[in-house]
């Protein structure tokens, strides 16, 4: 966001307090721009889905097709990765997918805030997934769920190492799940802002700069397209990995 002559690629991630809610128990609470965008996303998703399906027509129109496509896309992803049994988690996976996708896409609007570019948000979403996996795994399978960490067909002397590796890989799942989304959105937005900053810098230095600015402009256009791809892809990857982790909860033991 070029404010005056300063181009600060980090400024777009600034949390701005809209309404201060005091400090209950020494914890700062406030209604922020991030919260506003979260509720905006929820409202957008809900009103789109209900508005698109208001006709409940047999032959779907454009909007209804979009709503049905998103439904069937997530449903087939869940079925493909976690089987028919995984369909009980379908609302969760759909909510995660549609939330991340909408947050990423809304973030592509100029001057909009990208909710998913904050580590705490993606970490919370990843925690939702991994807690669901752990809690459901133990409720459903009891201690049998721990077989997840004991690969079969491994020689006894290797087993301790394998268990350690499996536990570490399991624990790194929420970390990588949250960091991937966070860093992708963060890095993409910073890169776009930096290249956009180059345009401003070059045009500031005179007529020659105007011609020179064509190059970063082309770069920004290409990056914007790439970022739209990344926004959709990261939402998809988040959903697919969620399904795979849920599959572990449904069918522990290799």
């Amino acid at each position: 966001m070029a404010s005056g002559s300063v181009i600060d690629p980090i400024h777009q991630f600034q949390i701005i307090k809209i309404v201060e809610l005091g400090q209950p128990g020494g914890i700062e609470l406030a209604f922020t721009n991030s919260a506003a965008f979260m509720f905006g996303i929820v409202a957008l998703v809900f009103f789109f889905l209900t508005f698109a399906t208001r006709g409940r027509t047999l032959v779907p129109g454009r909007l209804q097709s979009m709503a049905e496509l998103s439904y069937e896309f997530v449903a087939s992803t869940v079925r493909g990765s976690a089987g028919n049994e995984g369909m009980k988690f379908f609302p969760l996976v759909f909510s995660l997918f549609i939330f991340v996708l909408t947050a990423n896409m809304v973030g592509m609007i100029p001057y909009a805030f990208t909710v998913t570019s904050h580590l705490i948000v993606t970490a919370a979403l990843a925690l939702v997934v991994i807690l669901t996996v752990i809690i459901y795994g133990f409720v459903r399978h009891g201690t049998h769920f721990l077989h997840l960490f004991v690969p079969s067909g491994v020689p006894a002397f290797l087993l301790p190492f394998m268990v350690v590796i499996e536990v570490i890989s399991f624990l790194s799942r929420p970390i990588s799940l949250s960091l991937r989304l966070f860093a992708n959105m963060l890095a993409g937005h910073i890169a776009m802002k930096v290249f956009a900053g180059f345009i401003v810098m070059m045009t500031a230095s005179g007529v020659v700069g105007w011609f020179g600015a064509v190059l970063p402009l082309a770069m920004v256009v290409a990056l914007t397209a790439l970022e739209f791809l990344v926004a959709a892809l990261q939402a998809y990857v988040f959903a697919v990995l969620t399904c795979i982790y849920l599959n572990d909860a449904l069918h522990p033991g290799h």
């Binding site: 990588s176 960091l179 991937r180 992708n184 892809l233 998809y236 990857v237 697919v240 990995l241 795979i244």
Partner: peptide, 9 residues
């Protein structure tokens, strides 16, 4: 895509 996501992670 899963493989790419893991490598990218």
């Amino acid at each position: 895509f899963i493989g790419a996501a893991l490598a990218e992670g």
